[in-house]
Design a protein around this nucleic acid. Structure first.
Lengths: 151, 151
DNA sequence: TATTCGCATGTCTTTGAAAACATAAGTATA
DNA sequence: TATACTTATGTTTTCAAAGACATGCGAATA
């Protein structure tokens, strides 16, 4: 459904929201370890997210990534839009560039329902929500080892 | 949402269902022209669909692709399964191999709703349905030029 | 039964996402 | 202010999906 880049992005953001604070920033290595994503690739994705004001970063000693209150209140759709653009939520299900509301393809109506369903879900699900789910016991990649990695 | 291969497959099947009959089979060239897909790649995809008993083919003079009654009553999900497998309908939204019903990731519940929604839609939409939509006026790639190409 | 038409199949090439590498630049702290 | 630490950024490499090519095989028909 989502691209690999996008999956990593969402995983990273949820992880940072659950661990990174202004006072205790989360480092690159810890992030990529815990979301099981290649370190350098994650770094590049995080750049994009910083540019799109979804996460914040700080260089240097004791630097790392973190999220402020406003950023935590953003929604999953903001991550997808920053990384993959809006195609998934607005494009034709069969990839037809000629398909539109005025000249719909045979699949248009049925697909639109599902697509809007997905869009609404992504629009209404905040990063905070996901972070709470994680803390509530929803397993992530290596949540149980988090404290170990943070040593 | 779907892979390029899968988009072509669905487009091809809808086209064949709308034009190919036992007596008047639809040729490769006509298909790839009308669904705007590369000819050789379409040929390879059609092979897969023939093997999966979604379309039928006949070699030789006056040969081509067509669909019988049973095949026309199959559903869109059968095409996706044949081409892309079942991952889209059963996999984790964040691509986590560890995520399951027993150990769900934070995104699991919300994603499952949308995923099942998509699955139900693909399960309940028959190829016949799509073919009827096309004939009812839903524009496809070059429906208006179909007669021209068939000369 | 030979010829021609058109699908079937395997291999090769291209392209772009994904991943790795190398280096720059900013920040804290001793 | 020098050093160690950590993110930022640009370039290169890898790999799989997408697409192109070449050839095999089956069926109709003259």
């Amino acid at each position: 459904m989502f691209s690999k880049t996008c999956e990593y992005a969402i995983r990273a953001v949820i992880y940072i929201a659950s661990t990174g604070t202004m006072d205790n920033k989360t480092g690159m290595t810890e992030i990529s370890n815990n979301i099981e994503a290649p370190a350098h690739f994650t770094a590049k994705i995080l750049q994009t997210l910083v540019h799109n004001d979804i996460v914040s970063s700080q260089k240097g000693v004791n630097g790392g990534f973190y999220m402020n209150k406003v950023q935590r209140q953003k929604h999953l759709i903001d991550i997808v839009r920053a990384v993959d653009g809006d195609t998934l939520f607005s494009g034709c299900g069969l990839g037809l560039s000629t398909c539109s509301e005025e000249e719909p393809c045979p699949f248009h109506e049925k697909y639109k329902v599902v697509r809007n369903n997905l869009k609404n879900m992504m629009e209404s699900t905040s990063i905070d929500d996901m972070s709470k789910q994680l803390k509530k016991g929803r397993k992530f990649v290596r949540l149980e080892e988090m404290s170990k990695n943070e040593q």
